[in-house]
Computed example of a mutant assay.
Amino acid sequence: MKITAALSGHGGTAPELVELEQEAPRAGEMRVRLVATGICHTDLHEHPGRHSPQPIVLGHEGAGVVEELGEGVEGFAVGDHVVLSGSSCGRCPSCRAGRPTYCDLAMPLCFGGQRMDGSTALSDGETCVHSHFFGQSSFASHSIVPQRTAVKMDKSLPLEKLGPLACGVITGAGGVIEALKVQPGESIAVLGTGGVGLSAIMGAKIAGAEQIVAVDLSDERLELAREMGATHCFRGDQPDLKDAIRGVTGRGLNYTFNTTNVGAVHTLALEVLAMNGTAGFVAAPLPDADGPWKPQMFAMLAGGRQLRGILGGDANPQTFLPQLAEWWQQGRLPFDKMLSFYPFAEIDRAWADAHSGAAIKPVLLMEQPA
């Protein structure tokens, strides 16, 4: 069938809206009509062709309605509302342990732009177009998704808001609750208050953290961080930042959660830890003028401190996404305060606002809410 999709790989600052041919779902797959899709920084980074082959349809925070079932699909019906998460094999030790973001095949399944047999679901005439980005390629009117990628959601929920739960929100909130396992009365600093960082702050409040420190260069974002649960807010450019953060408790913090790729911030994340503290991070530090970033190993050893890489919040989307939606319904996870909505036809504007930071979490609307 013919679909409308946003294609990366033809140059330009943003994906280009085109008409593509999409095949029927194969065994174990479903066709989902997209209602909305969030834009994530991973999409921005992949648009020029960092890891995935091109041309490709990106998008990995999709939410929509099941339209067609492939052979052998169980547990879903046409008309179900679903949020689309990342792709995983379902068979490796990580998948069996409920940690699919650490699937042995995560890289080829999420970034390979094709099924494991080398086929794709999209074409432009006779030219192959890569699909299955994170198991969904949801910058489109319709997606072909593996059954494991879809998480069924309550139909009473506003589907147009739910897509960001699948990446930005689960990474932040899950990183604090599932990966770091922050406990009531503990302390944490969140470095960078974009969509992931604000989700981490909300997760820390849900977890019962006593001190929740937010650090950013934007006063507006720090104000929103305080509204979402931060107890202390600091600008990232203040000269006494390390001492100010450590002074919140008088001995440093139990945890830091770093959403940036700035080497100096990664250093700060370790320096403000208390003894036996853990520095969680979701983005690797980029090299700077001094070369690749290097952790201060003696300080880690002497203080029993740890670095902890976190993907997808360590969470199982099948169980954690409905939990996030429940917390939102209870008023405990107001993630919708950071959403900005754009018609799909205005993806250029949404893309630019994501790049500039004018929008914390842009969401493309393929359909207008009822």
Rank of each mutant, 00 (worst) to 15 (best):
G135F: 13
S8Q: 08
G175K: 09
I3D: 04
P292N: 04
E326M: 09
A302N: 15
F139A: 02
E227A: 10
T249S: 09
L159P: 02
V57N: 01
F344Y: 13
Q147R: 15
M300V: 06
F335P: 01
L109Q: 10
F335H: 01
D240M: 07
P15K: 07
T120M: 06
T120E: 01
P317L: 10
K161C: 12
G75Q: 01
I212D: 07
A230R: 03
Y102I: 00
M366E: 11
A299C: 00
S52M: 00
A140T: 04
L217R: 08
E21C: 08
A358E: 13
S88A: 11
M202S: 01
P285K: 07
H142Q: 02
E227G: 04
I201A: 03
V145H: 10
P362V: 03
E16R: 15
A189T: 01
T127A: 08
D240R: 11
G229D: 12
A150C: 09
D43I: 00
V129C: 05
A315R: 06
L162Q: 11
R115V: 00
T13K: 12
T259M: 05
V190G: 02
R305K: 15
A269G: 06
H81D: 02
G303C: 07
V215F: 09
S187C: 02
W293R: 01
N261I: 08
S143Y: 13
S85D: 10
C128M: 14
R99M: 05
D43Y: 13
A370G: 13
A6Y: 09
